[in-house]
Design a binder for these strands. Structure first.
Lengths: 225, 225
DNA sequence: TCAAAAGTGTTAGGCTTACACCCATGC
DNA sequence: GCATGGGTGTAAGCCTAACACTTTTGA
């Protein structure tokens, strides 16, 4: 099919993108992985990602690979870092530009596809053995995510468009791995003027209904304070 | 000399590294640039950098190119981000992995070399027109540098091994572009327990000599608070 | 003795943290 | 009416920010 050959006067590395996609499931921070169906590392789990098309933007590549391999699209992506240790891929020299991404927990239907045997969520503390240097990439992504909680509106990317303050607090508690005071949390969030009441309430369960909020600037992550 | 050809079954981009090297000269934040002596952008100024050797680590490449083009070595480097817009280089698809770096102002003797017509420091607010997307890269580097001032020990990378508190304060003032209160600044720095007195004093000029300090962990940038 | 930069504490106000009870609903 | 999570205010302490004068030296 493609018998063309691409010729250069000096050696070129391959470039890939990989995405660390986080979500929270059952109060647990989880990462999306795909099972590799081809060598190298056949049968092992890896981050969704793949080779950059020659005319394609880096972030577009990350989004495309994520959608091809898992069916997930339309989410927040941020560049994490670039990994290029000379032997990180046994096939050839590969430079991987990595992104991290967050998904609300109600978007959760990764599907297997042509490039991946299977896609599945793994709790961050129960990761399988990972292909390439992907364990290191996930570790960096987690650090960054937690750091950004403190000075950005990134947490909202893990919630649906509308949410209750309890849901928001739960996101912070899971990521920070500590309990927060309800009154102080609400005071701090409301003082930032980044969310507003929708006027709706959620009556789920045998207790008082919760006010439903939404972010003022939904599709963007802002730096605060 | 090199008539070899490198052949791949699908197109590969080229990968470069570029370095944004900052220093402070005469109370002004400055960036090191080189004048391009070859096309594209011949005669324009650009960041020091160049193509990745196929078996070379990314950071090693950045350090090597910096040394080759400017003679500067042994400084702190941190990955900044990767730039890969499809048309950013008119020759071929080029992905640039960028680093930012800081140098004490007493290291300042960039020299021209084989790859660059000339190397020179430019005040950040008086940059010439720049090749490629290098203006954007410098802008990002500056933001990162200023952000890291607040939560890391990065400022010490702009000073020699030993320094006075006034010198340190001057670094912060130049980067933040605002005057700081001397007493509050000293209190805050000393409270962090990251520097110690050497016992020496600097008697430069007709005024009281300043105590000389040094960083406890010199060669590393730490995240604080 | 004068000029120049080094060095040094205190106070007020704001922000952070700790803490406990009533409310609205479903069963 | 009771169990469940939703919703609310205050007080103490800590941290931040404002502020001025004395010290040491070289000329």
């Amino acid at each position: 099919m493609n018998s063309q050959r691409y010729i250069y006067p000096y050696p070129h590395p391959a470039v890939t993108t990989d995405v660390v996609l986080f979500t929270i499931q059952m109060d647990t921070l989880s990462v999306l992985l795909i099972e590799r169906k081809n060598p190298p590392f056949q049968g092992m789990w890896a981050l969704p990602g793949g080779f950059l098309d020659i005319a394609e933007d880096l972030e577009s590549c990350a989004k495309r690979e994520l959608q091809e391999e898992t069916g997930i699209k339309g989410i927040y992506l941020e560049q994490l870092g670039t990994f290029g240790a000379p032997q990180r891929d046994p096939r050839e020299r590969v430079i991987s530009v990595t992104y991290f991404a967050l998904s609300p927990s109600d978007h959760l239907c990764p599907r297997a596809s042509s490039d991946a045997a299977e896609a599945a969520w793994f709790p961050i503390n129960e990761l399988p053995e990972l292909a390439f240097d992907h364990a290191q990439i996930i570790s960096l992504a987690r650090q960054r995510l937690i750091a950004k909680l403190g000075y950005s509106t990134i947490a909202f990317q893990m919630l649906p468009e509308t949410f209750t303050l309890s849901q928001l607090q739960s996101v912070y508690e899971v990521l920070l791995n500590e309990a927060l005071d309800k009154r102080n949390f609400r005071k701090a969030i409301l003082a930032r003027n980044i969310i507003r009441e929708t006027g709706e309430t959620a009556r789920h369960g045998n207790h008082r209904p919760a006010k439903i909020y939404q972010v003022l600037n939904p599709r963007q992550v802002e730096i605060i304070k």
